[in-house]
């Protein structure tokens, strides 16, 4: 039996906003695969929950005329993995989502939950960071705001979302942030399935037409700092450089100022420092090759 004080079910978005307005302590729950475990571990107790996982307006993936891909917040990972637009334009997101939990978890867990939990190990997040995803939020008074995912996470398990007052409705990925880029995501874990990342790295890269120069470069890590985050310090060094091993070798700890890996039971700080360099380089090389480039 879960330690639930009150179990509200939202049928529509306006329903959810009204319930939030009247009960400021409610916790939003979508797929439930993280929240229910936290309740089981008694990290969350005696809680009022508000379920949003079955709201039709919060499900599905669309693309508009401008090429912006819109993923609604309670879309299940399995729907992302199999979606034709995702597979055509940003298959890297399908690859990342396919590494979450197990098939049973992916059948029910949502991308919005992965974001709003604020987990440092969230598998979908590094990819969303390099895709510059724009998050659309709505509060219980109906006020809407958008925030770049790079400004969303504020600490371990913490986000910019005002708890009990605001919900994430959709995620926008603009064409300018995926067109002509190629990407890769690497999850380092000790097991192949049911694993929480020891470290994750996502890279987005755009090469010049002759494939000799890096026109744009984005790199983000998970479980390497108190939040999943981009490393603009290396990005600045690599943009404009040639497509060479020397450029890839710029990915080294001495050049990174944003990360702060720590010791945990999953891995030591030293091992994570090694992973940041090694996985950063491998993922970058994979992304270069996916863009038709070759190291010289």
């Amino acid at each position: 039996m879960y330690d639930i004080k009150k179990n509200y079910q939202g049928r529509t978005i306006s329903d959810v906003l009204n319930i939030m307005k009247e009960n400021s302590d409610v916790k939003i729950i979508a797929g439930g695969t993280d929240m229910l475990i936290k309740m089981k571990e008694r990290k969350i107790k005696d809680v009022e929950i508000l379920s949003i996982g079955d709201i039709e307006d919060l499900r599905g993936i669309e693309i508009d005329e401008a090429g912006t891909i819109v993923i609604k917040a309670a879309t299940r990972f399995i729907e992302i993995i199999k979606n034709e637009y995702i597979l055509k334009y940003i298959p890297t997101l399908a690859k990342a989502c396919n590494q979450i939990g197990s098939p049973q978890i992916r059948n029910i867990a949502t991308i919005g939950g992965n974001l709003c939990n604020g987990a440092v190990s969230a598998d979908a997040v590094p990819t969303l960071l390099v895709l510059e995803a724009e998050l659309h939020l709505i509060d219980c008074d109906g006020n809407k705001r958008t925030i770049n995912v790079n400004d969303f996470h504020t600490g371990p398990g913490k986000t910019n979302l005002v708890s009990g007052k605001e919900i994430l409705t959709k995620i926008h990925i603009k064409k300018e942030n995926y067109e002509n880029y190629s990407f890769d995501y690497y999850k380092y874990g000790k097991r192949n399935a049911m694993e929480i990342a020891t470290l994750g790295c996502a890279v987005g890269i755009k090469l010049s037409n002759d494939k000799n120069i890096v026109d744009d470069f984005k790199i983000a890590y998970s479980v390497a700092a108190p939040t999943p985050r981009r490393c603009k310090s290396i990005e600045q060094l690599i943009v404009g450089e040639g497509v060479t091993q020397d450029t890839v070798n710029l990915i080294k700890i001495e050049n990174i100022s944003e990360l702060l890996p720590r010791d945990s039971w999953r891995a030591s700080k030293d091992f994570r420092l090694q992973l940041i360099k090694e996985i950063g380089r491998r993922t970058t090389i994979n992304a270069i090759e996916a863009n038709g480039g070759k190291l010289c």
Partner: peptide, 16 residues
């Protein structure tokens, strides 16, 4: 199987 999809019923509330 929930609507034909395999899920872990331990992480699913009956009310849903």
């Amino acid at each position: 199987l929930l609507d034909g999809k395999a899920i872990n019923s331990c992480l699913y509330l009956t009310s849903w």
